[in-house]
């Protein structure tokens, strides 16, 4: 049997046959970490430890984590208002994230940004964004930098189904295609832009169908299937690194929680939410790893327990951290000379 035949005869899911067991276990750990982080943030909000609002990504963990499997710290991402999962998937420390949400000086943005501007430039996360579609042209600019400087890093641009109807989407995808830039547009289609169904707000059936207008590949995958996302992004990242230009990947997924803290879930049914909860991306990935002998139940439980402990430690770190000095309100507006 040749190597090529061996690969084609391998019927295991893409992620299992592509990534090392340690990588897969780390991916599961980060998915649990995202879930527990979001729950910890929600709980802290209820207790009045976090003010403002936040947009939770519970239910979308596979989309965030599987997309980041191919990325190194040199690769960039731009994120969205629902960006906690992307940040963790890209490698951020949850203690500093909680500190940011708590408005503390030790937070990633020294308490100036909060949930909607969480970023970790060191791991290549150029930041969440409070403006729908705001990150799309910025991602194209980051890809332009890589091309201009002759680097082979790629930029992944996360955006939602809502952003695909912004003018910035059209301008960004067109320019990325015209200049053949190393960027992967990852649409997390969670079916609603706030309360407005994507099916109502978008003229095409699949958002990936729009790729044809920009002469780039477009693919729609089950965003709750870790392997499906990983495979689609793997192909798109390889294409970008090879200098062949951008791609559009659409991950069909669902947010279990409301849009933000003001959401009363009036636009969707309890049954619909429960139906999607039954497609829990973490449970599916965990079962897949166990089925293929990557870990056993006890090993998976240990990973889940580790996520709980990490989140608890992160919240404790945030609580114990100092707040910024009020006199520093204009600090960071401009570079300090």
């Amino acid at each position: 049997m040749t190597a090529a035949e061996a690969i084609s005869a391998d019927n295991r899911p893409f992620a299992i046959r592509t990534y090392a067991p340690a990588q897969l276990r780390e991916a599961l750990r980060r998915m649990y970490l995202i879930r527990r982080f979001e729950e910890g943030a929600e709980d802290s909000y209820m207790r009045g430890l976090i003010h403002g609002t936040m947009h939770l990504s519970i239910g979308q963990e596979a989309s965030a984590m599987a997309t980041c499997m191919e990325l190194t710290d040199a690769d960039k991402i731009t994120s969205t208002h629902r960006g906690h999962g992307h940040c963790i998937a890209k490698g951020a420390d949850v203690g500093r994230m909680f500190a940011e949400f708590f408005g503390k000086e030790t937070g990633y943005c020294h308490g100036r940004g909060g949930s909607m501007h969480i970023a970790d430039v060191r791991t290549g996360n150029l930041g969440a964004n409070g403006i729908v579609g705001g990150g799309l042209p910025i991602a194209v600019g980051a890809a332009l930098t890589a091309k201009r400087l002759g680097r082979d890093d790629v930029t992944v641009c996360f955006f939602g189904d809502g952003a695909n109807n912004e003018g910035a989407f059209h301008e960004a995808l067109n320019m990325a295609a015209v200049w053949k830039l190393p960027v992967v547009f990852v649409c997390e289609n969670n079916r609603y832009g706030m309360s407005t169904p994507a099916a109502y707000a978008t003229a095409v059936r699949n958002i990936a169908d729009r790729a044809v207008a920009y002469a780039m590949p477009g693919v729609t995958v089950d965003g709750n299937d870790f392997s499906a996302v990983a495979e689609a992004v793997h192909i798109a990242v390889a294409r970008a690194r090879a200098g062949e230009g951008p791609s559009l990947v659409e991950n069909l997924t669902y947010r279990w929680r409301g849009h933000s803290k003001s959401d009363r879930n009036r636009y969707r049914t309890k049954e619909e939410i429960e139906e999607w909860m039954a497609r829990d991306p973490i449970a599916r990935f965990r079962a897949e790893l166990i089925a293929h002998g990557i870990l056993d139940e006890a090993g998976a439980d240990a990973i889940a327990a580790d996520a709980v402990a990490t989140v608890e430690a992160g919240i404790a770190f945030a609580k114990d951290s100092p707040s910024p000095a009020v006199t520093d309100v204009t600090r960071y507006v401009y570079a300090e000379s």
Partner: peptide
């Protein structure tokens, strides 16, 4: 670089490029 007639996108690409080293 001649840009398409896309002021929002063009300015945004410039912002992203500036953010990452150009």
């Amino acid at each position: 670089m001649d840009t398409p007639i896309s002021e929002l996108g063009g300015a945004g690409v410039a912002v992203g490029a500036a953010l990452t080293g150009l």
